[in-house]
Design a protein around this nucleic acid. Structure first.
Ligand SMILES: [Mn+2]
Ligand SMILES: [Mn+2]
Ligand SMILES: [Zn+2]
Ligand SMILES: [Zn+2]
Lengths: 145, 145
DNA sequence: ATATAAAAGCAATATAGTTGCATTTAAAAT
DNA sequence: ATTTTAAATGCAACTATATTGCTTTTATAT
């Protein structure tokens, strides 16, 4: 396995973004998690390593470049996950289902579950679909049993 | 057609809610619109007829009783629409698709479009589905042509 | 080494939503 | 009709998420 930080540095360069501390740290954090990460959580773990505003701008830049994608949870707060691949500044390909666990509140990207096509009333032109499922994640429904 | 206000008053009584100005006004506003209505808009048109906090509490009470349902738009702000029917304090039946127009930003309840069932990975237990489509609504795609 | 555009930091502001408590009021009881 | 009371409203303070403008710092190209 190649050095992770080196990979991130390449990713930044490829997207015309400077290699900075806050950016590397955000990539580090997001890549180490199995579910989408909320802005508040990121802010907390970054602590004084970066200003709040810097964090917001890092997230915005990453989203624009197609490095991460945003998912709003049931409360409307932003959560971020690294894009699997094929996403770019010009187009995101994250039309997978997101699963919001009622118990642990994690948001999973169900990359394998595609959103089924939809029949809408005449005149409506669908551009994107955004499906959030709620319920119990695999780990939480285990514990309940 | 029976008097609208009288209908609203019955609705409040049926749900054990007192017949008050702010509540009737919210029902009046919501029923007069063809799409979901945002909290900020409601706040604005209510003006000084009710305190912000009262509005929040009215909306919360209505949602709990199954009189209205909440839809978050792409920015995560709350929008409200009157439940078609069959909703109660114990269960909502609003699993229809919501359409968020990129142009006019209206949110339409597509009551006729049911959300297709979903195959999720083993272990996950789906409780609710929340599908938001974005694009152009019928009226806006007309204007563009 | 120097120049420079990009990024970060800082302060102020905006907007959505919540909480606690005092006051008012709709509706029930008398 | 009055009185009673639980429910609802209003007000003030507060929290959380997000944004904007401006200054300073810094990564990178020259
Ligand atoms: Mn995702
Ligand atoms: Mn609806
Ligand atoms: Zn869970
Ligand atoms: Zn429209």
């Amino acid at each position: 396995m190649e050095n992770k930080t080196a990979r991130f540095e390449k990713l930044l360069v490829k997207n015309g973004l400077k290699r900075t501390g806050p950016r590397l740290q955000v990539l580090e954090i997001l890549s180490g998690r199995d579910s989408a990460t909320s802005q508040p959580y990121l802010e907390q773990v970054m602590g004084k390593n970066a200003d709040r505003v810097t964090l917001y701008r890092v997230l915005q830049a990453f989203e624009e470049k197609g490095i991460i994608h945003k998912v709003l949870d049931q409360q409307g707060t932003a959560n971020y996950a690294i894009c699997s691949d094929g996403c770019s500044a010009h187009e995101h390909h994250d039309e997978h289902v997101h699963f919001n666990c009622d118990n642990c509140h994690k948001i999973y990207c169900l990359d394998t579950v595609k959103i089924p096509a939809l029949k809408v009333p005449a005149g409506f032109k669908v551009e994107h679909l955004n499906l959030i499922a709620t319920g119990l994640c695999a780990s939480c429904s285990d514990k309940v049993n």
